[in-house]
Amino acid sequence: MELLPLGFFEWAESSFLGYIGKTYGGIYATLGQSVHLISLAVLGGAVLVSDFRLLGWVLRDVPSEVVAEQAHKWFKIALFTIIASGVFMAAAIAIKLYYNAAYWAKMYALIAGVLFVFLVRRPLLRGDHSQINPWVLKLVAVASILVWVSVAATGRWIGFS
């Protein structure tokens, strides 16, 4: 099910942003796609360092509260850049994306990921982790990894569909 009407996508493609992305392939590939990928690496680092720590795989001698707090800072920066570069890229091929199932899968995965981070993960990890059942922490870490890997994988499949 599409989240927005076709008219919105038609407007996006005819907008200034859509015009730039469509007309200048070099700008689309570098400021759009490359920045999107580099931000994905930062987001991946932030998510995985924090989640691997919750799973007890890395940095076991560093308090998980410290790791989660610091990683979240970079997560927010990466998420903002991913969304900004994503909007730029999407505007250039908006009408095509409206009919692309992988695009909508990515949007649903992204919304799920953002809601999960800001409504579940972050509020839970802001406190003292020793007060939380270790299995809950591990479950949150696994869910977090799965949701963000899904966002990245469905994102890549937009180009194949």
């Binding site: 994905l40 690496a41 680092g45 360092v49 990245a152």
Partner: peptide, 11 residues
């Protein structure tokens, strides 16, 4: 592409 998240993420 997914391994970018792991390798470059850690780096």
């Amino acid at each position: 592409v997914l391994t970018v998240m792991l390798s470059l993420g850690m780096l």
